[in-house]
Simulated scan of single mutants.
Amino acid sequence: MQRILPAFDAYALSSRREALPLSLIEAFAARLPVIATTVGGVPEIVLHEDTGLQVPPNDATALGQAMARLHGDADLAARLAASGRQRFEQHLTAERMVARTLDVYAQALASASSAR
Rank of each mutant, 00 (worst) to 15 (best):
H91E: 13
G52H: 10
A94P: 02
L20G: 07
L76W: 11
I45S: 05
A62T: 07
S113T: 07
L102R: 13
P57R: 02
R31L: 03
V34I: 15
P43H: 07
S23A: 15
S113L: 08
L70P: 12
E49M: 04
T101N: 11
V39Y: 04
L76I: 06
E49D: 14
S14G: 13
A7K: 07
A77T: 06
E49I: 00
I35E: 09
A81Q: 12
D73V: 02
G84E: 04
L63H: 07
S113M: 01
Q86L: 12
E49H: 06
D59K: 01
A108P: 00
R87M: 02
D50P: 00
R116P: 13
Q2L: 15
H91D: 13
F88Y: 15
P43M: 03
R17I: 06
H71Y: 09
S83T: 07
A74L: 04
L13C: 12
P6L: 03
P43F: 04
I35T: 10
L102M: 13
I25S: 10
P56S: 11
A10V: 03
Q65C: 09
L24C: 08
H48V: 01
D73T: 01
S111T: 09
G40D: 04
A19V: 10
L80T: 11
S111L: 06
T101M: 13
Q2Y: 06
V55Q: 03
D9K: 04
V98Y: 09
A82E: 15
I45F: 04
R79M: 12
V34M: 10
S23P: 12
G64L: 04
G40Y: 04
M97R: 15
E18S: 02
L32N: 09
R96L: 06
V39D: 05
M97G: 01
Y105T: 04
L70S: 06
I4Y: 12
L70W: 08
V42Q: 03
A110Y: 00
E95Q: 15
I35C: 10
Q107L: 09
A77E: 08
L63V: 13
V104F: 14
L32P: 13
E89G: 01
A94R: 13
F28R: 05
T61R: 15
R100M: 10
A94Q: 12
L32H: 11
V34H: 10
L70A: 07
R17W: 13
A78H: 13
A99R: 12
S111M: 01
H71M: 02
A30D: 09
A19I: 03
R116A: 14
A108V: 14
Q107D: 14
A77K: 05
A62P: 12
E95P: 01
V34R: 08
G40K: 05
P33M: 07
T38S: 15
L92W: 01
A81T: 11
